[in-house]
Design a protein around this nucleic acid. Sequence first.
DNA 1: GAGTGGTCTAGACCACCAA
DNA 2: TGGTGGTCTAGACCACTCC
Lengths: 228, 228
Amino acid sequence: MQPGWEAIRAEVLRRIRAREWRPGDLIPGEEALAGEFGVARATVNRALRDLAGAGLLERRRKAGTRVALNPVRKATLDIPVTRQEIEGRGQSYAYRLLSEDDLAAPVPVTSRLGLPPGSRLLRLRALHLADGRPHLYEDRWLNPQVLPTPRPDFHAISANEWLVRNQGFVTGDIAFAAEPAGADEAAVLGVGEGAALFVIERTPWSAEAPITAVRLAYAPGYRMQTLL
Amino acid sequence: MQPGWEAIRAEVLRRIRAREWRPGDLIPGEEALAGEFGVARATVNRALRDLAGAGLLERRRKAGTRVALNPVRKATLDIPVTRQEIEGRGQSYAYRLLSEDDLAAPVPVTSRLGLPPGSRLLRLRALHLADGRPHLYEDRWLNPQVLPTPRPDFHAISANEWLVRNQGFVTGDIAFAAEPAGADEAAVLGVGEGAALFVIERTPWSAEAPITAVRLAYAPGYRMQTLL
DNA sequence: GAGTGGTCTAGACCACCAA
DNA sequence: TGGTGGTCTAGACCACTCC
């Protein structure tokens, strides 16, 4: 039998689950395991690195590898472009730009973006529809520095889609919450004021500058789902 | 300069962002890039594999590596044990078991778990408190097959914590939503009926059997946050 | 200081799958 | 069926960090 790194990962996993190696225990070094399994050290390394990435092992140079005391579950979420998400369900997608203004951004927005107070940003409000019904209300403040001249036509393409295609990979943060619908949101989404909305707030950064601060409020019934 | 796989990843990223390689383009093979960067093919492989994992590249044997047309953002969420999450914020943690019953589970629950209708499960209802105030209402159906005899004392340890410590790594699914508080939840959490609650539903499986179906309703104001 | 994991190399074989 | 990515090896050097 040729183990392969996935087989080694599975065996290590089995020993953890079987409590042969208990939380907090130091497990044998890579060299020792390589000898035991009859593979090269790099193969063991690949398996253990994968388990460490999943939060099951904690590895430190010199200190060795331990079974994590508090296995933090890590779930990977896919954050699709809204149009694809809707079309992927077989529904028709439509997008409507509600407003587009150059404004001095309020302080909470500039501080989220790390820009000086009073910076002028492009504010976009838009509605995404699935089968003609309101699906997602988008409220976005966009750093005009990242835009080319002339500006993209945000009536034709959603800002998110344009950014995904033209900004590539970026860092940033993302937060999820449940919030009651405000008066504006309730009207736009066609729900009662105070309805429970699933809200995503994102603040992506490129290497050089903050890109945008966006608040996405989903119509009731939206669920975000993933495998563990 | 010794590139290293992270430098190679950065350079590939730069080319994608600079649109030297556009979405859908076939990029050079590993061998060619290894030659260009003056590193071994394994080093290039590591960098490209990482970018593919992030959703930016699509790789297929024989077909080669392409820049993804629709870069799906992937975010990794940490799902901590509630006690640690609260104590990590410097708040005091308390846990109160509200009820513990052997019941025939309703059909939605048995179907989620893939068990025959009418299966008897252990239902646990519990409240987690932060600084003495309601933080999280937990409604859980637990497969008694995974429990030892005698059963753990779920007054002393929360079911989640017991499972994390004793079930090890499992698969399953997880969903996030915003829902209005029902009458029970509102009373337990001390909020108005219909308040917007952040809800997580989890259904973890071990290799052999479904473990539990749990619904977690967080008190208003809860945010789940992570880096992209 | 020394032990451990992190990474790199040069080469090899293999699995997959588009042509 | 050939080209490409996936993986493995045996060895090496290095960086980090605990002792």
